[in-house]
Write a protein that binds this DNA or RNA. Structure first.
Lengths: 210, 210
DNA sequence: TCATGTGAAACGCTTCACAGCT
DNA sequence: AGCTGTGAAGCGTTTCACATGA
């Protein structure tokens, strides 16, 4: 079993989405060249990415769309439901709660937490907002797999600690702060402010170059 | 002028945030070692990142916090205001509109667009929601620098095209889709579904390894 | 002939290690 | 002595190019 880079995984996500499109277009076979073109990658990269997990193609023909799609589904582990706990019931949390792309991929938010007393007890759809103190109990009761952090930066690390303590093994962090978690806990960050700063840098530089 | 990697830029964002903390703690000097520790990086990496832009440190002492902070501010181009146009006034757009981290960094959303007739004409704070057809006119009127795409995947590329056509040089894309833009236009993606799939992969793999 | 799968080369980022300055 | 700045080594990813098989 070799090491697979996180970029490969991101590209697999992309290939997977494109394969769905090809499937609904009725395409049977797809070449690495065409897949790469639509994915913004190179043919060699597509083949290399896939080769990490086995040999799925037919020489001279390409990849059978339906098979490849279901192989990637299985590799990514999205051939099952995942239960998600959301901490932070502000506007961002609300947007995440109703983000259709999540449910479409079988990620189900089964619990919502917020320390704001005016929010506790309210319902979002059929989920009641609870105090974060209940995290550990709720996580084991609902067998939560993934924790989503949508709280202000200054409390993000303590929320992450509580999630780890509750046995959560995967965290998606929206706070603008680097989080530290033990080995064995998967952590991904979505940092919108950082992306804006990257754009700001690019624009400042372009201006300077002209 | 050398090439600077996008990871260096992301780390500069992180250093910048940490330096603000050190400043408010009253620290005068900071070593690459301590900065790296808080940033989750290595001392050599901190020094290498900074060396792309000049020499800011004092041998034997470290970096003068206030100076380094303002240097990074200037490098990232966040020492000025940026005007942002948001396309997509759904829940995600709404969350972005009121995301405090943006305004704190001087990113100001000065225009909001949505093609939903029931939304057009409504106001968010003092910004009126307009039809995307008005994009080009509004961008040049308000001198918009950055476009944010918060629409469903299937219309994201056409929105990006319209932004490019309107002269926007930097785009932040929240749609779950790879966008293609011409050279000279900076593009950053925030792909929440993709991050969840990366977590799903990590969890599936962990389980398989045991 | 056509497209995959893969050693090997190329490339870019990170880490090492130390000269040089305070 | 302590810490920066940086050439050089190390390492992981991408790209090349071709043997292999349909």
């Amino acid at each position: 079993l070799q090491k697979v880079s996180e970029w490969t995984i991101h590209r697999l996500s992309t290939y997977h989405r494109l394969l769905s499109e090809f499937e609904s277009e009725g395409r049977e076979y797809i070449s690495s060249h065409e897949l790469a073109h639509r994915a913004g990658a190179t043919p060699a990269q597509v083949r290399r990415d896939l080769s990490c997990f086995g040999t799925f193609g037919t020489k001279g023909r390409g990849y059978f769309v339906a098979d490849l799609s279901s192989m990637i589904t299985s590799i990514l582990g999205i051939d099952r439901d995942w239960r998600v706990a959301l901490v932070g019931a502000g506007r961002l949390g609300s947007a995440l709660f109703s983000y259709k792309e999540f449910r479409r991929r079988n990620f189900h938010i089964v619990a919502v937490f917020d320390s704001d007393k005016s929010k506790i007890g309210k319902h979002w759809a059929d989920v009641e907002i609870e105090h974060p103190d209940a995290l550990k109990a709720v996580v084991s009761k609902h067998q939560v797999d993934i924790g989503v952090i949508a709280v202000p930066s200054d409390t993000a690390q303590s929320v992450a600690n509580a999630m780890v303590d509750a046995g959560i093994k995967a965290i998606l962090n929206f706070a603008h702060r680097k989080l530290f978690v033990p080995d064995g806990v998967a952590l991904r960050n979505v940092n919108m402010a950082m992306e804006l700063e990257a754009l700001s840098y690019a624009m400042s530089r372009n201006r300077r170059l002209r």
